[in-house]
Design a protein around this nucleic acid. Structure first.
Lengths: 199, 199
DNA sequence: AAAAACATGTAAGCTGTTACATGATTGG
DNA sequence: CCAATCATGTAACAGCTTACATGTTTTT
């Protein structure tokens, strides 16, 4: 049985760190650079958050550190995933795509997907995209209903309909998401196999 | 001169509260409900954050509260903006649209825009959208360059190109944003004035 | 020689989360 | 009468931000 001390769930930052370290063993400094310079930086940044998070993950046994000392360089701690860390990462990326994920944590979903490449097989990744496309379609329905019943009539005279326009952006964003999921699905689907056709 | 004690910048939650209270005077409970049930809930939620934030804003003189007691009901504190609060809200929504805003705080930009309707005139709102469209166009350029130089060749054998696909979603999202800004711009532009054509 | 980048970390302060406390009013 | 909703809060805790400390290696 899995009888542990009741583990606190990992924070988004910790999960992002696991994913990045799984792609490639990295040092704290490497990770700081990535968060500073790439869109990944949504998940916070800066030594003050990253180094303590790495320590927490090491304490939990999800990461292991090995001190490297190339030539006369200052020693660097290179982190890599332990089997337990790999398991935790896999559990996260393969979590069910919930309604709440789509509404409140869209960028976490995209991060999960981008880490999937080296973690799961085609079937799991396409399943993720299918669930995402379904859920998004339902959401769009709801938003469009809301939009239809939201005329500009009740606006104070002279006020601009910026609220309605912002909602339209939201609808467009989800439509873009759905179409992307469907396009990506086609790209990930196994290419028509010539051998098979002949065999 | 503006010689104050060096005011800490307002948090996103505090700014969201100012905007919502400006739309309509509200109680803490009203605000909790809004965050619970609408996409606005990105900006946190739950009494534990909202009530203290309201108190902070009152302490700063940005909000004023009046206790209402309709019939035998439990007294409710209804908040409204002070002139200083209105000023702070206006300063926020009319802030320059920076590159960092587009990359790291897109939803804050949309929130600012949605609050603009009752705060600024057409010229300011369209200026905002123009800056947003410009900035986004530049961003898309950069992302597409990155995308072009990012082949799938270096991927480990068998790995799926989910990272590249996720990037494609990001590009699509910014494209959607830019097109939305341009459509909205047309909707906000003063309608062709018949009088003028005849005059 | 100086500045910038490499590299790791700590400390104070504040905000947000979760959970709880309290009590009135309304609906079934 | 019991549950749900209205309504306002507090307390413990944990994480993130900002700022600082420290020392090395590379670049200018």
């Amino acid at each position: 049985m899995n009888r542990m001390k009741k583990t606190r769930p990992l924070t988004p930052l910790e999960l992002a760190l696991l994913g990045l370290i799984h792609q490639d063993d990295r040092t704290g400094y490497d990770l700081c650079k990535i968060f500073e310079t790439t869109p990944m930086g949504h998940y916070s940044s800066s030594p003050g958050a990253i180094y303590p998070a790495l320590k927490r993950l090491e304490g939990r046994g999800l990461l292991s550190a090995s001190v490297e000392k190339v030539g006369s360089m200052r020693p660097r701690k290179v982190y890599s995933l332990t089997p337990k860390g790999l398991e935790a990462l896999k559990a996260w990326v393969t979590r069910e795509v919930s309604h709440d994920d789509l509404v409140w944590r869209l960028d976490e979903l995209l991060l999960r997907f981008s880490f999937m490449g080296q973690l799961v097989d085609r079937a799991v990744a396409t399943g993720f995209l299918r669930r995402l496309a379904e859920g998004t379609a339902a959401l769009i329905q709801g938003l469009e209903d809301h939009h239809r019943t939201m005329g500009d009539e009740h606006l104070p005279a002279g006020a601009l309909p910026t609220g309605r326009l912002a909602l339209e952006h939201g609808i467009g964003a989800y439509r873009n998401l759905m179409e992307w999921a469907r396009r990506s699905l086609q790209q990930l689907e196994p290419p028509p196999n010539e051998e098979q056709r002949h065999g």
